[in-house]
Amino acid sequence: MLVLLFFIIAFHITSAALLFIATIDNAWWVGEDFFADVWKICINNTNCTEISEEFVDYSILRAVQASMIFSTILCCIAFFIFLLQLFRLKQGERFLLTATIQLMSCLCVMIGASIYTDRRQDVHSKNEEYYLLTSEGSYGYSYILAWVSFSFTLISSLMYMILRKRK
């Protein structure tokens, strides 16, 4: 049981780390001379522009930012609740509160990454230089980590639903 508990804790910490990296790191959309995320666009590693109202459909990126931040916060809260429930639950009870919060985190990641996937082409600068440069590119590793963290948080929430407190 101790090995299973260690595996679940390590899996949850890995999920939280992936969410932090996907939310913070600047590699959601990458190209030859630029990289961008939901916070800023950097051209030639020197000219970084914070994404603001000058971008068309700025509200879309705000929704992605909010859902990724909310997902990260929920994942951390779920971990702390799991630790509290580990010492407070009676033997044989399930970690349903932790599973529910982790599932909400999973849904927030899915919503954020799905919005970004669907509306990526709509988010461009009114500045013609940025638009032409960033139109050609591909999804970066932070975007991929967001989808990987979605699957990790989903699996983690299912593990919490199944897990019973045993001796």
Rank of each mutant, 00 (worst) to 15 (best):
N127P: 03
G140W: 06
A146W: 03
S114Q: 08
G92V: 10
M104I: 04
S142N: 06
R120M: 12
S114R: 14
A113L: 08
Y116N: 06
L132F: 02
Q121R: 10
S114P: 01
E128C: 15
I111M: 12
S135A: 12
I144V: 10
L96Q: 01
I115D: 12
S114W: 07
Y139S: 13
S114K: 14
V109W: 02
Y141H: 09
L97G: 00
S125Y: 01
F95T: 00
Y143T: 13
C108I: 01
G112C: 04
L133Q: 05
L96A: 04
E93C: 05
T100S: 04
M110R: 13
N127Y: 05
E93R: 11
I101M: 08
I115E: 08
R94N: 03
L97T: 00
R120G: 10
Y131K: 05
C106A: 14
S138M: 10
S135I: 08
Y130S: 09
I101T: 04
M110S: 03
L145D: 04
E93G: 00
T117P: 00
E136W: 02
E129Q: 06
A99R: 09
S125P: 07
Q91V: 12
Y141M: 01
Y143G: 14
A146M: 05
L107M: 04
T134E: 10
Q102L: 13
S138L: 13
R94A: 06
A146V: 02
I115Y: 13
E136H: 08
L132T: 10
K90E: 10
A113E: 05
L97K: 00
A113S: 09
A146L: 10
R94V: 07
Y141E: 02
Y116H: 05
L96M: 05
V109T: 09
L107H: 03
K126A: 14
E93I: 01
Y139T: 14
E136F: 01
L103R: 11
E129I: 02
T100H: 01
S114N: 15
D118H: 04
Q91Y: 15
C106K: 13
L133K: 06
I144R: 05
Y116P: 07
E93K: 14
A146S: 11
Y130A: 10
C106D: 10
I111K: 12
S105K: 06
Y116K: 07
V123M: 11
S142P: 08
Q121V: 11
L133A: 11
Y116Q: 06
C106I: 11
K90R: 13
I101H: 01
L133H: 07
R119C: 06
E128D: 13
C106H: 15
M104V: 03
F95L: 01
